[in-house]
Design a protein around this nucleic acid. Sequence first.
DNA 1: ATAAAAAGTTAGACAAGTCTAAAAATAATT
DNA 2: AATTATTTTTAGACTTGTCTAACTTTTTAT
Lengths: 220, 220
Amino acid sequence: MLSHAEENYLKAIYNIGLHTGKSVNTNLIAEKLSTKPSSVSDMIKRLSDKKLIDYKKYQGAILTSYGKKVAVNTVRSHRLWEVFLVDCLNYRWDEVHELAEQLEHIKSDSLVDKLDAFLKFPTHDPHGDPIPDKKGNVNHHKNVMLSSININESCIVVGVKDSSSAFLKLLDRNSIALGSTIKVISKEPFDNSIHVKMKGNKQSFTISQQVSNNLFVKKI
Amino acid sequence: MLSHAEENYLKAIYNIGLHTGKSVNTNLIAEKLSTKPSSVSDMIKRLSDKKLIDYKKYQGAILTSYGKKVAVNTVRSHRLWEVFLVDCLNYRWDEVHELAEQLEHIKSDSLVDKLDAFLKFPTHDPHGDPIPDKKGNVNHHKNVMLSSININESCIVVGVKDSSSAFLKLLDRNSIALGSTIKVISKEPFDNSIHVKMKGNKQSFTISQQVSNNLFVKKI
DNA sequence: ATAAAAAGTTAGACAAGTCTAAAAATAATT
DNA sequence: AATTATTTTTAGACTTGTCTAACTTTTTAT
């Protein structure tokens, strides 16, 4: 039986590993978990003893298949709880992360699957992130960002990379939600901001690079 | 912010105090929490420092109004989660206790009230225990046990005192559920077992004293 | 290739929560 | 009232997870 802290470390290593593909550094984990590199070193040793990661001193960590399984299950739990919080309890998408961080650690053989069934097997969480299935299979984002869309092309918002409350509230204020259709009108070379128009909206407006780099989209 | 352990101690003190009415001894708490009296002594000191209980050495513990508030909120959370698990996720009433023990500790200002609303403000949990309202008011059982019902009288099952899995499964096997109507046919002086008949059932059967002492009923 | 910078690890300390073993206080019994 | 017995508390140890400060290894840059 793993502790909350252990699961959080595995999840962090999993998420960082997804982007980088290779061995994960101590400092990145520390940053992600708002802790200190020395604490990470300690924990990494314990996780290695438990065969959850492969680790050689000074060489970073990689999940074993067992560790990956735990991480994916935790991610699955997290995302299903987020769906529950938004769909059933009427939370907003910018409110659910911290709560799901707690709920994901509830220990049970059956809870997550029963929750999945109750929610009718959702495929994505409120931020557009894919929900791993019972067996741990995940359909990852294709990683097309709004910033890569050409002028005069349109796209649909399918996810957010940053799911911080600040970013999500900014999107709300601009009426950008999952499923929104956005057309790129022009690009500003100086600061890489882009001028966009939302479908069904006459008014066009400007989006900074920080924002367009954090919106997953699908071309249409 | 209180730890899971602290909340569990407060809940135990609250539950024991409900029955006894007075200062709660160390040994009872230790038994209820499956821990050792020495651990209880330690924790009791901490809870006293935090003004959650009143405590004088060798004199047992009593909840302060603040401590009682925490305990009742934890009970409220526990029972609402039990309703969710049974009504939404299709767990049986003998399966939900352990899970609710975990879920009750999720920290949030709004979660429990939102859950309450989602569940349409239930008044009782799957074992018939009353759910405290938002303000902490509870309608306690009137404590009428099946064992106190006279011959030829009928009653409705409104709750269980023992909510262990073993007891609940025994009730299931005898088709005794909340709302069942039971008529007392005869009593056996030797072992205090009673002979009963369920409404809508021709067959009558015998119930031991242990069982009849753990069923809350309402006379009809 | 060697010095400086960055990254990673160890050592020692701390807090929460638990335990065993022993001591102290209270309660029960003769 | 004195002696058991029971209950409660203390003392010291252990685990998990964290920290700071110091040290080592690896990487980077000159």
